[in-house]
Design a protein around this nucleic acid. Sequence first.
DNA 1: GTCTATACGGAGATAGAC
DNA 2: GTCTATCTCCGTATAGAC
Lengths: 237, 237
Amino acid sequence: MGTQDVLDAYGIPVIPDPADAAARKRRSITDAALAEFLAEGYSAASMDAITQRSGVSKATIYKHFGSKERLFLAVVGNVLAQTYADAGPADSALADIGTAADTGPETGFDTVSARLRAALVRVTTDWARVLLRPDIMALRRLVIGEIDRFPQLGQLWYRVTYDRCNRPLVEALTMLHARGVLDVPDPELAVRQLVATTVGVPQLVHTFAPGTEPDEDELARVTGSGVDLFLAGYGRT
Amino acid sequence: MGTQDVLDAYGIPVIPDPADAAARKRRSITDAALAEFLAEGYSAASMDAITQRSGVSKATIYKHFGSKERLFLAVVGNVLAQTYADAGPADSALADIGTAADTGPETGFDTVSARLRAALVRVTTDWARVLLRPDIMALRRLVIGEIDRFPQLGQLWYRVTYDRCNRPLVEALTMLHARGVLDVPDPELAVRQLVATTVGVPQLVHTFAPGTEPDEDELARVTGSGVDLFLAGYGRT
DNA sequence: GTCTATACGGAGATAGAC
DNA sequence: GTCTATCTCCGTATAGAC
């Protein structure tokens, strides 16, 4: 059977750039592999199934990735980094509270503590919305289940979550402590507690209940209550 | 090779009860299966390896359990129930605080709030010590990783943890609320938050760092701080 | 670079003697 | 009830043509 020509809008045949074609195959392989690994787990996932899902031949997959292990690490590692890069918190608002940059009433909250609460709820709710997505939860379950065989993934997960989530919050809380807005003697621990009481609460449920979507109202209620608990312990009042 | 006679303390050969022998084989099978599943995960675990670990033949295993799936469910289900039965909290002390049964200074804490804090720290620390044990953490990772294939385990996990851990605490908090010791409008949520800020904090770390033992001092510090946070939010002062 | 066809081992499960 | 020996299939990975 001859090659099917691809035509552009003017009817001119598109000659694919070989490098481009390779990159696209690579992408279709990783997409297929991710779907298969998420659905079956590492061991039960078969390279045959990934071959069929991707539409390329098995030999090509091995040329690109070398082995099933390397394919798994490449796929999961990339998705992990990508996910947390997308969920990067732009919480400059949080660090600025109580300074000249904190514009006060313009945000709709007329006290420092109200603006602080709103900022914390916003940050934790944004995280929760991402981290509770069914595909992210499935990825999390996959990584946790394979930690004993792939300890690198545990370290990667820790580094990514810490750099993108915890560290910015630790720095923000340290500033707020120095500024007298909060009383946080141990910011590292405080951040872990804040994350636990907000995101951690629904996350635990969804960890053992696959496929369930988080309810937006319930989410707002839980994160709000968690932030209130946090502020009751660490706020200055 | 002839049968090796087993002799009792008086030199009398012990004739094994067939039913007893079957039960012991069954036990050695489940022990071997648990070790293999924990080490390799469900899919990568091989019935051959379980056969060798257990010392009985593969056909015997299939006579007893029928299939690999059924063996897995039987083993994990039993261990789950057993674990939480052992870790059952005898926290009658907690529910009695502020009543006539609360003997006050005899416990070494002379105020109601101090006794309450001590009881909460004790309960959460006891749980944490069990739940953070490396073998329990490994079991947890195994169940989480296989949740998509075995949703029954998710339901079982939820039921067991709720019945043995959450429900007693919810009831205790409800009593304490009615008695005016605490101000807990939503005890269900409050318990989940308490568990999250105490046990949940180190549990998250150990989930992604396999094989690490919890440090007793660090554990006391974290649970103590978590309980303080909880009491700051829900205590009456 | 990509494909088809295949090598080679190990998986889960069972038949039949004792 | 328990064992040994075996069936059958599917796994990962590669050889060699184009």
